[in-house]
Design a protein around this nucleic acid. Sequence first.
DNA 1: GAGACGATTTTCT
DNA 2: GAAAATCGTCTCG
Length: 220
Amino acid sequence: MTDFYKIDLSRFHKPDRAFFKRDVVKVAKDLLCGYIKHATRHGIVGGLIVEDEAYSMYDDPGAHSFRGVTERNKVMFGPPGHAYMYFTYGNHWMFNIVAEKEGIGAAVLVRALQPVEGIAYMWERRPKAKKECDLTSGPGKLAAALNLGKNEYGVDLMDGEFSVLLPEPEYRKKLIREYGGVTVTTRIGLTQGAELPYRFYLTEHPCVSVRKKIQKTADK
DNA sequence: GAGACGATTTTCT
DNA sequence: GAAAATCGTCTCG
């Protein structure tokens, strides 16, 4: 907990696409402590993933992909490692990372980040935030803070201006230990599939959006 | 083409 | 803790 805001970016590397081409629930769990980076016109913004959720077409009526391909969700069925962006509640963009092999509609919703790079820019994007974690402690918030929207729909996250990086295994273990382990809960804001334990977060991390009552810890 | 609703955020009580 | 804001997408007729 001591070196809370000192994320060592030298210990992150570009992922293998095979990382995303796996069971989406595992991908979601393994993406904790991943790093999202976006090179905007005004500089680089980036943050550490501290909370996410899995969505799958197989057993999950809460997933957009559950009822088949539509114009909105088609990216979920495409190759893994790409960005699925969608707009909801009239205001908010959500950022998802496509998982599983091509043809399977599955993705991981990134729900909260710890701000690391470009924090001044995030404050400009989200002037209503009160503390640093408010910049990115929610799916709509982090999309606004990193300036993500329809332009990022379908973008390949393996490389380029908008990408995801993974920590070295030893460094990841250290981060998880510092933040009190990983908590598994049901997902937020769903009416269907609400009972599925597909949400993951760093237990003691202050940037987590919502803490639920039903919790069971999973060490990793 | 109309109507309902949502993987949310903010503000007010 | 509750409710409004707000509009693209999906479903049905």
